[in-house]
Write a protein that binds this DNA or RNA. Structure first.
Length: 421
RNA sequence: GUGGGUAUAGCUCAGUUGGUUAGAGCGUAGGAUUGUGGCUCCUGAGGCCGAGGGUUCGACCCCCUCUACUCACCCCA
């Protein structure tokens, strides 16, 4: 490590080859699956007015209070690097009146998010999410469709051992009553709670349910259960969802202590948990947020969404991904004249598809073949002084070691035909 | 923000109770009779031993400070 070496900002996660190939494989699977379900991609701003997040995520949440990259630009506007995707999608949904274009909108996004936290395994300051949102559908069928789709995604990546946990947070009709009930329960036991939870009693008592402090957990065991105070509609929604999941055979656990760190959720919330991830074990999470569109100035529109942590997903996907792409043919010139001859063919072969590789340096046949082998090329095309004289190149099948001649005039055509097969 | 661990070659790691030219495996470059890959063998390149200071005749090793990385708390995807 040199003294004046410039390095990335702490916690900013970069993806290099060959990892970047694996990322794209997974990303492509995600896109294909979602587009099959009728989702369309959004490419949104990375920088937003700070107010967007304090209004959507909630001003009292940890994310907004202490984890955002917030700064003033040159005209003293307060801007924030997005810490999550939902707020921006909802902002765009309203800004472009997407609800008027079609009644139901299914949107997805892929990209970096930013949170100023202490980095650790599966948690970075610049991290990546695959996320999706559905607007305009209030029925539990939508919840089920999205959850099943997510499960299918994990399955497609051969990731197993993921547990789906579900809960319902109720709606504006039934949550306030529960909140009060929980509040008084916690107040009676205030002395047993950790400092954070004592503060949470006032601001956000639901968060106490989620606290990892042992003594808090003990207190909370006997706490009132949200699912016992749900109103009729919420109860119906939740049991409807569970029934549907049973029908399609998707396993889940109901976790009445599951709450979300973002304030906008209503009714269904969920997490997909993976044991192999260490302390940061949620690989995907989300839920229903029927009030957020309205709160951000739009028309009352029910919505459901989720986000997947890309880095965490890739830790789980491990080596189970298929082999990376390899070149079809490696062009091997043995001297400058041969290189000169091959260069135009090389660029023509790659015009519309990556068919060929060509080393631009003068190297021995031996080392060029070695490289072709290492890259996994199917054919090697050799041209040296002998071939130049005859006007015929040697085409070597790297697996069978068979060699055939191809006239220079037919090189492009012949290689293209071989590639097609 | 609070703790613990680590810092030696591109990567994964040895190392000397302080002593002269700092090691291995992998990777990389080249070679093993003239122009033919994978296995094997040989050779080479590549490190002011995280940074700064101190103790000492002498520090990669001991002491102090800093920084980075990492794991955990917190929180979350």
């Amino acid at each position: 490590m040199k003294k004046n070496q410039i390095k990335t900002v702490k916690g900013f996660n970069e993806v290099l080859p060959p990892e970047s190939f694996r990322w794209r494989l997974v990303e492509d699977k995600f896109r294909n699956l979602l587009e099959g379900y009728g989702f369309a991609e959004m490419r949104l701003a990375l920088l937003e007015p700070t107010e967007l997040f304090s209004r959507s995520i909630g001003g009292e949440t940890d994310i907004v209070e202490k984890e955002m990259y917030t700064f003033s630009d040159r005209s003293e506007r307060s801007l924030t690097l997005r810490p999550e995707g939902t707020a921006s999608v909802v902002r765009a949904f309203n800004q472009y009146s997407l609800g008027k274009i079609s009644e139901i909108n299914k949107l997805y996004y892929v990209g970096p998010m930013f949170r100023y936290e202490r980095p650790q395994k599966g948690r970075y300051r610049q991290f990546h999410q695959l996320g999706a949102e559905v607007f305009g559908e209030a029925s539990f069928y939508q919840d089920a469709e999205t959850l099943v789709m997510l499960a299918q995604f994990f399955q497609a990546l051969s990731i197993d051992g993921i547990i789906l946990q579900l809960n319902s947070l109720g709606c504006e009709d039934c949550r306030p009553a529960f909140r009060e009930q929980l509040q008084s329960f916690l107040l009676e036991r205030e002395s047993l709670l950790c400092g954070d939870c004592q503060r949470r009693i006032k601001e956000n008592p639901l968060r106490a349910l989620d606290c990892k402090n042992p003594s808090c957990r003990e207190v909370v065991v006997d706490a009132p259960q949200i699912n016992e105070s749900l109103c009729g509609d919420c109860r119906e929604h939740f049991s409807g969802l569970c029934g549907l999941l049973d029908d399609v055979g998707l396993d889940y656990q109901i976790n009445s202590k599951l709450v979300r760190g973002l304030d906008y959720y209503t009714r269904t919330t969920f997490e997909f948990l993976a044991g192999d991830l260490g302390a940061q074990n949620a690989v995907a999470a989300g839920g229903r947020y029927d009030r957020l569109v309205e709160e951000l100035g739009g028309k009352m529109t029910p919505a459901f969404g989720f986000a997947i942590g890309f880095e965490r997903l890739m830790m789980l996907a491990g080596d189970k991904l298929g082999p990376l792409s390899s070149p079809f043919v490696t062009l091997i010139p043995l001297d400058e004249e041969a290189l000169r001859r091959l260069f135009p063919i090389y660029v023509k072969l790659n015009r519309d598809a990556g068919i060929a590789t060509l080393g631009l340096q003068q190297k021995s046949l031996k080392s060029q073949l070695k490289k072709a082998d290492k890259d996994g090329a199917k054919y090697a095309l050799i041209i040296g002084p002998d071939e130049l004289e005859k006007g015929v190149a040697i085409c070597r099948n790297m697996q069978t070691k068979e060699q055939t001649g191809i006239a220079f005039t037919e090189l492009e055509e012949t290689l293209r035909r071989l590639y097609q097969d």
